[in-house]
Simulated assay, not measured.
Amino acid sequence: MPKITTTDGTKIYYTDLGTGRPVILSHGWPLSSDAWQRELKLLADNGYRAIAHDRRGHGRSSQPWNGNDMDTYARDLAELVEALDLHDLALIGHSTGGGEVVRYAAQHGAGRVSKIVTAGAVPPIMLKSETNPEGTPIEALDGIREGVLKDRSQFYQDLSVPFYGFNREGAAVSKGAQDDFWRQGMLVGLKGAYDCIKAFSETDFTEDLKALDVPIFIAQGDDDQIVPIAAAALKSIDLVKHGTLKVYPGAPHGIFGAYQEELDADILNFLDK
């Protein structure tokens, strides 16, 4: 399994498929690079070098006690990009991964990053406050922490339902998708899973978004039950210089089914421009 070792000794696993212009895909919480299997093949089939990594604490990467925060995630990504010597790089990030690629691009990616795609991403900030009344209340986030600590196996099974919108009337429920969500979640170390909740919900990416000087495609479903679209995509588009927003009617947070098919086509179109 290909891995790099970061300066603090953390081993970061990655998948590297195809040849051509490089594209890095960053996964959401509590998943791993396996969440991007379909997109990795699609990109490689269409002439791109498709790379996806497991964030520290997740998947097949190391589970260090420290560094489960957005600044360190972005530095890990920077070290991966440098190790692979990637240029003219496109970034794709879902949910927490959207925050990771935005911070990386703003703080480490100058001269390397040429395009960005986010889907259901957490920027500019997920946590509800007086200045962000559309955000997620701290009580709901504390509930996630409690669920992870109390019975993470059952919690991940339960979370998969709203994640993919399987609790909506008429939804085409996939037991396989739920099982795979649970499988990936159970690979996350408990400390990393717990700390990442704070990282994805309380990190403010406002200045990162303002600093971006490359085209960014911002995608989100309007039935996202995990990351409120009013606090996310609808605010992010007003902070970036070269942004395109697409809202997917009825689409959930998780990239699956008809939403995945449409988003994947839009990603290819955006990258090919």
Rank of each mutant, 00 (worst) to 15 (best):
F163P: 05
F163G: 00
F163I: 06
F163H: 03
F163C: 04
G165F: 02
G165Y: 02
N167F: 08
N167E: 14
N167A: 08
R168D: 12
R168F: 06
R168I: 12
R168M: 13
E169L: 09
E169H: 09
G170N: 05
A171M: 05
A171D: 01
A171H: 02
A171R: 03
A171F: 04
A172C: 01
V173T: 14
V173D: 10
S174C: 00
K175T: 13
K175G: 09
K175C: 04
K175D: 10
G176D: 14
G176P: 00
G176N: 13
A177H: 04
A177R: 03
A177G: 00
A177Y: 02
Q178F: 07
Q178D: 10
D179C: 04
D179H: 13
D179L: 13
D180S: 11
D180P: 00
D180I: 13
D180Q: 14
F181G: 09
W182I: 15
W182P: 07
W182H: 15
W182S: 11
W182L: 15
R183K: 15
R183P: 06
Q184D: 10
Q184Y: 05
G185D: 11
G185F: 07
G185H: 06
M186N: 03
M186I: 03
M186K: 01
M186H: 00
M186Q: 05
V188T: 09
L190I: 15
K191N: 14
G192R: 07
G192D: 00
G192Y: 05
G192M: 03
A193C: 08
A193G: 08
A193H: 04
Y194V: 06
Y194K: 01
Y194N: 07
Y194I: 08
Y194A: 05
Y194F: 12
C196V: 12
C196I: 11
C196A: 14
C196R: 04
C196G: 11
C196E: 14
I197E: 04
I197P: 01
I197W: 05
K198G: 11
A199I: 09
A199K: 09
F200I: 13
F200D: 04
F200P: 03
S201K: 01
S201E: 06
E202K: 13
E202D: 13
E202P: 00
T203S: 12
D204P: 06
D204Q: 11
D204F: 07
D204S: 09
D204L: 11
F205M: 09
F205E: 05
F205N: 07
T206C: 02
T206A: 05
T206H: 07
L209S: 07
